[in-house]
Amino acid sequence: MSGESINLKLKVWRQNGPKDPGRFEEYQANDVDTSASFLEMLDVVNAKIIKDGGEPIVFEHDCREGICGSCGAMVNGKAHGPKDKVTLCQLHMREFKDGETLVIEPFRARAFPVLKDLMIDRTSFDKIISSGGYVSVNTGNACDANSIPISKENADKAFDAATCIGCGACVASCPNASASLFTSAKISHMALLPQGQTEAKKRVVQMVDQMDHEGFGHCTNTYHCEGACPKGISVENISRMNKEYLKAKLKG
């Protein structure tokens, strides 16, 4: 299954810590096998950097299966690279042409400070979740799982919203660095299920406030986020969040 091999020029953002201003550095990636993944290509580049006495490019990754949400960078201006609906770890080098130059930079947002090179700190997302993205049900309190039927349609929609991997591509690709798609996916997931109803009002208000508090921008309905989302989460969720929010504020 091995593919052809191509040569690429990489312009990679290097930044030594949150305070370092950072700069681009150029690397040559030669004989890249087109069936390698993007991260495997970076592994090979890194191995060479280390051999040459340098420090490897830091990037976050773990599962390399497109599910943990760790990886992510802007490749030629697009979150997770040019291909739709894949994470960076699932982007393969067959998407690129021999001789191309790739500009690789971190996801940029005030709420995602750069830790090093391409690695960013996304704890702001966790804070949004901890502000209300849950059902308050303590262990042992549950009734039989089948005692509350849920229409398949709602269950499927809730699932689609819940597939968010929290990678931050929505923020990265939003002209306003808004976290609306992320936040609304969780709000939708819960709002669509009977289990989520009791705390629905409190949840939406607290999560939206937290999103502002973390320093994310607001949504201007450009829908860039949906295009960049590796899981194809729909902007319908943002619409649902807006409605839930209005409901919560009007009815108090």
Partner: peptide
């Protein structure tokens, strides 16, 4: 059996049949 109950109560969106059951 308790695990499934607990997870459903948390809002884990398991697959469902058209009748609404798991």
């Amino acid at each position: 059996v308790n695990i499934i109950d607990q997870c459903v109560a948390q809002g884990v969106p398991f697959a469902r049949e058209y009748g609404g059951l798991l």
